[in-house]
Design a protein around this nucleic acid. Structure first.
Lengths: 253, 253
DNA sequence: ACTCCAATCTGAACAGTGTTGAGATGGCTT
DNA sequence: AAGCCATCTCAACACTGTTCAGATTGGAGT
């Protein structure tokens, strides 16, 4: 190991590592910037040459983790096999009817396992606020979801009329489940029950989605912070007060 | 108004009021105990005769708000009318087929409106952790949901086999939607689109739920912190580290 | 009416926080 | 070799949650 030198090799990364370790050990908020700096062996103010504030550090850490989650989810989908009809990929065991929801369920399961495996980290990410569209999150989890829904729609397993805003309908239950689980509001007895109930939620949602009657003018638009560029500098300043009371709702009333 | 007397009439309630105001003005975490005390015109240490810690104050405030939410949701259900077949209540406009999901949709809409109307308050409640079963939350939102699902099951609109754990399946999407909305991860353009998409999620979930094939041994048990007494002292101490990594999952593997 | 108690509030203090600015240090280019 | 400039240190600021010895009081008991 390099003896304590004045110039640390890559302090930025080291601080992120230390912070991540502290989050894992003491919870999403149970650590301080000073503590992370001390763990790296550096004075607190050194951190400010790499992050504008503690909040910036948290957001950077959150993006690093989100990026890993994106990879994880993409892998989960891939391991679930190709959807029938889609070109030349690793064929799925034929014989039983291939389930078109297979991949999406794998995605949801992956999301939930990830959250439950390390609740503190998940809490950090969920609490860090929206990931700006300008951020460099390699495969953003949201993109993975979008791609899978597109596949389903191409395949015809998801009616074209129901495709718009479907991320919305699918993401909500999965994310909700994750939040309820890591906050301890819901518990299941064992791993099998966990998988069973998780799949139940996803399947119920998707079945319902496939059979819904679309309104005559189609579904209204839904924007996600990640894809929509108009509001890219949301939550820049310290405490994320969020949209003022009613802003979310009363825009066009 | 009483001039500044040494003994404040009801400091506990006054502190809760001040804190709630601060949350509304500056966000769920953008305030301090000292600030709330100063606003009431009292020294910081005075608060410690009514709350063991800042966290206790937050939890108490959260419970007060949860209780109001319970009332609100119960009202929303009531205003949606009686379900056909259920005794003598205010009859619903007959003529069109009465929608058995009416009340549940009203509940979900109420939940979402509440969250979006005052995101900071919702964030506080969601972040305060589970409400212990011993807490005196008059009609706990969770109880309202349970009651509505029981009604649906009694009516036959929800298959008996799907009733166990249905809170789980219904709560997740609604809560997830609320969280995504208040965190700004999802936005809709206007109030009509909001209602439409919210109803879409709930309806999709419930339709899917009504048509699911139950596993041969039935659905495994699901516990919620509110109804399950075994773990009532969860999250008592300061930072809610949550269950250790994997605890939620690996219990019975 | 008076005493006295126990609840309530104050004041000062402690350790710890995020953040800032002036200066030391040393790897890099020239 | 000289010097630049990113990097890091040190000391300080205002602020936080929390504690504890002591002042203040409303109300119960005599």
């Amino acid at each position: 190991m390099a003896k304590a030198r004045y110039h640390h090799g890559d302090l930025r990364a080291a601080l992120l590592d230390a912070a991540e370790g502290l989050v894992r050990e003491r919870g999403a908020d149970g650590w301080s910037l000073r503590e992370a700096s001390a763990r790296v062996g550096v004075s607190p103010s050194a951190a400010y040459h790499h992050f504008a504030s503690r909040d910036t550090l948290v957001r950077a850490l959150s993006e690093r983790i989100l990026s890993r989650l994106g990879d994880l989810l993409a892998d989960a989908c891939e391991q679930a096999g190709e959807l029938s009809g889609a070109g030349a990929g690793p064929r799925v065991p034929v014989g039983e009817t291939a389930d078109p929801l297979r991949r999406l369920i794998a995605l949801g399961r992956g999301y939930l396992h990830w959250a439950v495996e390390d609740p503190a980290v998940a809490r950090l990410v969920f609490g860090a606020g929206a990931t700006g569209p300008d951020s460099r999150v390699s495969p953003h989890p949201h993109d993975v979801l979008t791609a899978e829904l597109d596949r389903l729609a191409d395949l015809g397993a998801l009616p074209a009329a129901s495709r718009p805003g479907a991320e919305f309908v699918v993401w909500a239950p999965i994310h909700g489940l994750a939040v309820l689980l890591i906050d301890g509001l819901i518990r299941v007895d064992d791993a099998r029950a966990f998988d069973l109930q998780a799949e139940r939620v996803i399947r119920a949602t998707l079945n319902g989605l496939c059979q819904e009657p679309a309104p005559s003018e189609g579904w209204p638009a839904v924007h996600t912070t990640h894809t929509d560029r108009r509001r890219s500098h949301l939550g820049q300043e310290g405490e994320q007060v969020g949209p003022g009371a009613g802003d979310l709702l009363r825009q066009a009333e």
